[in-house]
Design a protein around this nucleic acid. Structure first.
Length: 139
DNA sequence: TCCTTGACTCAGA
DNA sequence: CTCTGAGCCAAGG
């Protein structure tokens, strides 16, 4: 069976992304970059490249996610829904969960950002980030 | 094979 | 606050 030359590492990565997103509870949101930062760089990936493109890979995973993934809870670092076809549905779903948008269609990340606890991260083999009390956009 | 595009993010202006 | 460019990966045409 030697003809399979492309082990779907990217698919493995996407599966881990979906696993993380399933952990976001209703009424909370995470950014693409936050999800990426919870996962270690895929084996063989240049950490620097992952830093730059991880968030976009997460976006790609969300575009292909299965039914049971709460994809609506992943938004961009500005606290906005990334423009594309279907963005209106995403806002409606989040509002049903109690997430409020301001007049500029922005979510207050300091209020709604999902903050996974250390144990949950350990159980899922994720990189845990200590949370800074600052006004840092991420964490 | 070349070129374009992408559910991103951050620093700098 | 807004706008721009860079980062330098992959899939698809």
């Amino acid at each position: 069976m030697g003809s399979f030359t492309s082990p779907p590492d990217l698919h493995v990565f996407q599966a881990r992304v979906w696993e993380v997103v399933r952990g976001i509870p209703p009424g909370r949101v995470a950014s693409y970059g936050q999800v990426a930062s919870l996962l270690p760089p895929p084996p063989g990936t240049d950490p620097k490249a992952y830093l730059a493109f991880g968030p976009r890979w997460v976006g790609g995973a969300m575009a292909a996610c299965p039914e049971d993934v709460p994809w609506q809870r992943v938004i961009n670092a500005k606290g906005q829904i990334s423009p594309r076809a279907g963005a209106e549905d995403q806002r409606a779903l989040l509002e049903e969960e109690g997430v409020l948008f301001d007049e500029r269609l922005r979510v207050d990340l300091s209020q709604y950002r999902w903050k996974p606890d250390e144990e949950w991260c350990r159980e899922h083999g994720l990189v845990w980030h200590p949370l800074e009390p600052r006004e840092d956009p991420l964490f």
